[in-house]
Nucleic acid binder design. Structure first.
Length: 222
DNA sequence: ATGACGATTTACT
DNA sequence: GTAAATCGTCATA
């Protein structure tokens, strides 16, 4: 019914991956073996050294963003505002600092643990769509922090499933017409790059963060 | 050593 | 709509 995303799946440009991650499932396996998972419904592409909004703009390379230069399929986790972690999937060609930010999931497994991670009490059923809405909330719900920075989403030869992976259903649950895109969120002085339609989300998804009513464009267009 | 800032979230007017 | 929270990171000295 589904397959694990391979290295080649991640080895392509960020906008294309950001679009095609919609409808796939992000799986977080805890040390206890419990699975926390959700369908990806919102992403943003950070397309490389020329992207003024990227942490790697101009080839910037520091201890913090080192993982952006790792191989496709690597997790890049950063800490910001003194409070939140945000998760990216590195893509592009080997050594290129290109990545996709995961902004929201529709939870599918482990709702109870996610609620606990969010600091919620019991009876959170009516707020399930808020569990993983927004990049910071998503990380908190899935217990993702900098200890996972640099982790590989693609299993090694041993075949052991990693602590984070992406599962691709044989048939996408997302109809092509359900995908919208528009400008990325929360950018400062990114100049012209601020308005590029590099944010992708699923239409009508209650779990999408920020504005849900932006322009429609040809899926994958940049 | 120090200061400014942030790919956010939440609460409040 | 605006503001506060909060601290690791980076540039500057």
């Amino acid at each position: 019914m589904c397959r694990l995303a391979s290295r080649s799946f991640f080895s392509r440009d960020a906008a294309s991956l950001a679009r095609d991650l919609l409808g796939t499932t992000l799986v977080r396996t805890l040390p206890s073996g419990e699975r926390l998972a959700g369908m990806i419904v919102e992403t943003e592409a950070y397309v490389g050294v020329r992207d003024r909004a990227s942490h790697a703009f101009g080839g910037r390379r520091t201890a913090r963003n080192e993982s952006m230069y790792a191989k496709p399929g690597t997790l890049y986790i950063y800490f910001t505002y003194g409070i939140h972690h945000c998760a990216n999937i590195v893509c592009g060609k080997m050594g290129e600092p290109v990545a996709v930010l995961l902004r929201a999931l529709r939870p599918t497994e482990g709702h109870g643990s996610m609620a606990t991670n969010r600091g919620w009490g019991v009876g959170a059923a009516e707020r399930q769509h808020e569990l993983c809405r927004g990049p910071g909330n998503l990380c908190r719900a899935l217990a993702i922090d900098r200890s996972l920075d640099g982790a590989d989403l693609v299993p090694g030869r041993g075949g052991a499933s990693g602590s984070v992976s992406v599962e691709i259903p044989r048939r996408s649950p997302i109809e092509p017409g359900m995908v919208l895109n528009g400008p990325r969120i929360g950018l400062g002085n990114a100049g012209t790059w601020k308005d590029r339609p590099l944010r992708f989300w699923v239409r009508d998804s209650e779990t999408v963060s920020g504005r849900r009513t932006a322009e429609t464009r040809r899926p994958g267009a940049v």
